[in-house]
Computed example of a mutant assay.
Amino acid sequence: MVIVRKIAGLIAGAAVIAAATTFVNAQEVPADTTAPRIAVNQEAKDAATKLDLLQQEIYIAEQQLTWLTLLQQYGDRLHVERVMFPSQKELVPGYIFTPVKLDKSQKHPGLVIVHGAFHGHLDWRFFDLIEYAVSRGYVVIFPDYRGSSGYGDVVYKNDYGITDTADVLNAADYLLKSHPYVDPQRLGIFGHSRGGMVTLLAIERSPKKFKAAVDVAGLTDFVAFMAYKPDFRRMETVVETQFNGKLPSENLGPYMDISPLNHVDDIETPLYVFATTGDRTVPLTLHSGRLIDALRARGKVFESKIYDHAPGDHVFLFGDSDERRDMFERAFDFLGKYLK
Rank of each mutant, 00 (worst) to 15 (best):
A18Q: 02
V4Y: 15
T22W: 12
E28C: 13
R5W: 07
V29Q: 14
R5L: 10
I7K: 01
T33A: 12
V2S: 13
Q27E: 13
G9V: 03
D32L: 03
A18E: 06
A20N: 10
V29K: 14
D32G: 02
A35L: 12
A20D: 10
A20R: 08
I17R: 00
A20K: 08
V29C: 11
V16A: 06
A35M: 10
K6M: 12
I3H: 05
T21L: 09
K6F: 07
V16D: 05
E28A: 15
E28R: 15
T22P: 01
E28N: 13
A35F: 11
A8W: 09
N25K: 12
Q27I: 14
E28F: 10
F23I: 04
N25W: 08
I17P: 00
I7G: 03
A35E: 11
A20E: 09
G13C: 01
T22H: 13
V29F: 10
V16M: 07
I11A: 12
A26N: 02
E28Q: 14
E28G: 10
G9C: 01
A18I: 02
A19R: 10
T21V: 09
G13Y: 02
F23Y: 09
A8F: 13
I3Q: 06
G13R: 01
A12E: 10
A15P: 00
V4G: 14
R5G: 06
I3P: 05
V4R: 15
T33M: 12
A14M: 06
D32R: 04
A15E: 08
P30C: 02
I11Q: 14
A26G: 03
K6T: 10
T22I: 12
A8E: 15
A26L: 02
A19T: 12
Q27L: 13
T22C: 11
G9L: 01
F23Q: 04
R5D: 13
I7H: 01
F23W: 06
T22E: 11
T21G: 05
A8N: 14
T33R: 11
T34Q: 10
F23L: 08
G9E: 03
V29T: 15
P30W: 04
V16F: 06
A19H: 11
G13T: 02
T21Y: 06
F23G: 02
I3V: 15
A35V: 12
V2N: 14
T22K: 11
A26M: 05
V24R: 05
I11M: 13
I3T: 09
V4P: 08
G13D: 04
A35C: 11
D32W: 02
L10A: 02
V24C: 07
T34W: 06
A26H: 02
V2A: 14
A8S: 15
